[in-house]
């Protein structure tokens, strides 16, 4: 009798987790499509900037290389394991330039002093893409957590049914 109750409990939890996982999967795909839209907008504006400034002026050549001076990231991630929920949560932080932190430099400056408006738009689109990425990372960690839990519960259910 108690075993029956146990299996029923496991099955109910499995059902809930499965539904939750399906919802998360849908949300994950939707967020990736949002990310794709932002990135495509950004890339289109990069292409417009290339048209104005010349092809070689917006390329990997302008990016800092190993021999350039130390550069600090402006967009960083704070993540911590949420003990109540059991999975990691990520939060995006965009560091503002301040006098105490002189290493921080606007990446637009790598491409020149007076850059076209399109490059500013491209930067904003990619900043938006970073926000999506923070959300996707959260969904992904929840999905991973759900998958681990589902695997464990399935095993438990199989074991319980074998001993029945």
């Amino acid at each position: 009798m108690t075993k029956d109750v146990d299996i029923d409990k496991i099955c109910t939890t499995l059902d809930k987790l499965t539904l939750d996982t399906l919802t998360l999967m849908e949300e994950h795909v939707q967020l990736k499509l949002n990310l794709e839209n932002s990135m495509n907008d950004g890339i289109l504006n990069l292409a417009k900037t290339r048209y104005i400034m010349g092809h070689n002026n917006i390329s990997s050549l302008q990016l800092p290389a190993e021999d350039s001076s130390e550069i600090e990231a402006i967009a960083v991630i704070h993540s911590e394991e949420n003990e109540k929920l059991g999975y990691r949560m990520h939060d995006l932080e965009v560091i503002k330039k301040s006098e105490s932190n002189s290493k921080i430099q606007d990446p637009l400056k790598w491409f020149g002093v007076l850059v076209p408006q399109n490059l500013h738009i491209a930067q904003n689109r990619f900043k938006q893409a970073l926000i999506w990425i923070g959300e996707i990372a959260n969904i992904q960690s929840r999905l991973n957590y759900n998958c681990n839990k589902l695997e464990g519960l399935r095993q438990l259910k199989n074991d319980a049914m074998k001993t029945e």
Binding site: L46, A73, A75, I95, I133
Partner: peptide, 24 residues
């Protein structure tokens, strides 16, 4: 905070570094 790293084609790297993820 911790970093985001990028492995991608030229446009992806230029874009996200423009967004501020790059660090040396």
């Amino acid at each position: 905070g911790k970093l985001l790293s990028v492995i991608g084609d030229e446009d992806t790297c230029v874009g996200f570094l423009l967004g501020g993820v790059g660090e040396i």
